[in-house]
Every structure is written in C-alpha cells, then in structure tokens.
Design a protein around this nucleic acid. Sequence first.
DNA 1: CAGGGAAAGTTGAACCATCAACTTTTGTCG
DNA 2: CGACAAAAGTTGATGGTTCAACTTTCCCTG
Lengths: 163, 163
Amino acid sequence: MTDAEATRWLDAGEREAWLGLAGVMLLLPSVLDSQLQRDAGLSTFEYLVLAMLSEAPARTLQLKTLAALANGSLSRLSHVVTRLEKRGWVRREPSVVDGRITVAVLTDEGYAKVVASASSHVGTVREMVFDALTPAQVGQLRDISRQIMRRLDPEGRYEPPTA
Amino acid sequence: MTDAEATRWLDAGEREAWLGLAGVMLLLPSVLDSQLQRDAGLSTFEYLVLAMLSEAPARTLQLKTLAALANGSLSRLSHVVTRLEKRGWVRREPSVVDGRITVAVLTDEGYAKVVASASSHVGTVREMVFDALTPAQVGQLRDISRQIMRRLDPEGRYEPPTA
DNA sequence: CAGGGAAAGTTGAACCATCAACTTTTGTCG
DNA sequence: CGACAAAAGTTGATGGTTCAACTTTCCCTG
C-alpha cells in the first residue's frame, strides 16, 4: 500500500470478522501445539513433517518439496530434520541423480510414531473446528480459505502438488 | 480424546477445508509479520500491544488485561513491555490502589508510532483477506470464527471486554 | 568446454517465546 | 491478628525460528 492512497478502514462487519479470524489464528495453533506436545512430544511442524512423509511414495521426499508441504522454510526444515534424525524417526539420503538434492526417508520407528500420534491429533482438530460447524459452514470455510490462500501465495508455492 | 473412542477421521470435504485453514493459519501471520517488520520495525504482537493501548481510556491498561487483549501470556507481555519501554513507546506505572498491579501507559511517541503504522497494516489485512471475499463471505467468516473461538476459549478469557 | 549464475542445503548467530521458579502484595479464615 | 493461599508480575534458562553467509552441484551460454 502506498502513501498516496487513502486507507480504506474496516467497517463494523469486517472488523468483527477480523477479530474472530485473528483470534483463531493466534489460539488454534497454540492449542494444537499443546495437545501434540503433551500426547506425543512433537511440535505441530514436526508432526506435519512426519505426516507428509508417511503419505509420500516410498515414505521419501526431497527436502525442498517437504518444506513446501509443511509450509516452512528450507532452513527451518533442515534444523528439524537434524533433530528428527537424532530421535531415529527420519534418515537423510543424498540423491543419486542430482548431487544438490537431499531426500528425507521416514524410518519404521518414525512411521509408528505418526500412526500413534495421528488419532488424538485429528480428534483435537475435529473437536475444536469441525464439531463447531455445520456441513454448510465447512464448505464455506473451504472456499474462504482457498480464496485467501490465493492472495497469500499467488505462485502456489505452498500448494500440495497433487494431493 | 481417549483411546477407547474410535477416531472419526476427516472426510474429503473436511480435509480440504482443514488444509485451507491450516495454510492460512501458517502463512497469514508470517505475511503480516513481514509487512509490519519491514514498514514499522514491529512484530505483530508488539503492534497489537500498542494498538490496544491506543484505544484504551487514558491510553492505559493493566498488564493482565493487556495480555488478554493481545492474546498473549503475562510473561510474554512483560518481556515485550520491557523492550517497548526501552524504545520509549510505553511507560510502566505501579497502581496506587493495589500494589500487585502494574499498568502500561502509551507515551506520545508510542501513539505517534501506532498512527504511523496502522494504515499500511490495515491495508495489508484488506488486501490479503477482505478483498478476496464477497460481503456474504465476510459474514460467514465472522460466524465461523466465532463458533471456533467458543471452542478454543470456552471461558471467554480472550474475548474483548466491551470493544 | 570454461565460467558465471542459479538451485539446494547447511550452519552459526541473534532473537524471541515458553516455562518454571521466585517475589511481592492482597485477601481470607481460623 | 496471624498465617496461608491466591493473584500479579518479573526474571533467567532453554529451545526453536529466522536471517544471512557459505558450500556444493548443476545448468547454460558464449
């Protein structure tokens, strides 16, 4: 926004919607983090990394791709993979076809960890989000978040490739 | 969720809605943070603290209250107020009526800072969120986030008192 | 085929949030 | 009235995130 344009402030309805969305954006991640930390000893990001790997072919993904799927930077992912390796849930392997590429492979222990954590995590999501909404609202939420995502990520860098 | 109950997994529609919401939850804060950091040298939380103070009577609030309004813990707020004091935007004052209470007061420099930062911040919110939505969707978003908030914060601890 | 630039990762430093322990003040209940 | 518990803040340590600098590999072009 440039200084030349006059600010279009939020009207009453927009303000209410914004306060609500801001609240959800701040509280929901912290609730999910607490639950996962308590029940599985994982952060949401760590869980996402393991979960994405568990659904990938051969439980293997290039770090670049994994970073996008988990909505995080490559640097952040690299640090996290180092930690997950130390806990024995993930293994790094260099790519044979391209020397720049490193892939992450989910170990059997890592797979077991995801399976053990998924149920209660999904339960929390259902309880906090979907149990609060009507089926019609679920559809509305899908459309609304898609449209916002198109603004936040116009290049589709964080879009799931085919999922 | 207890082990005894079977997990109700997300159906296709819910899964799409969840991926969208999760994306917004992860990306929107980082976009807002970048904008504020670049244009004003503030984090979102710091901005929220200053903004809440600017709208309060006498530009003064008890730390406990301010923490709830800004959706943060008391500890986090205490650290932030220390930083904001060093930059001259906020002043701490002990309460005369209750020795346990500390209030934060927005200085004139702090008020000027909020005014200078608000316009471009609101511009970003409008651009990323409301310009992407129809008026009907704004209403839907308000209802949806209210209902989720009621789950996340059943006691209404993070509800704005009267705003 | 040589060199420059882009792509993919890694690493260390600086910064911020969280957690637990601690201090001070107030209220309450024998 | 004395003591104990709760409330409000503060503080230091710990751990995770970000940012910028750096390495290695690959691609492309002259």
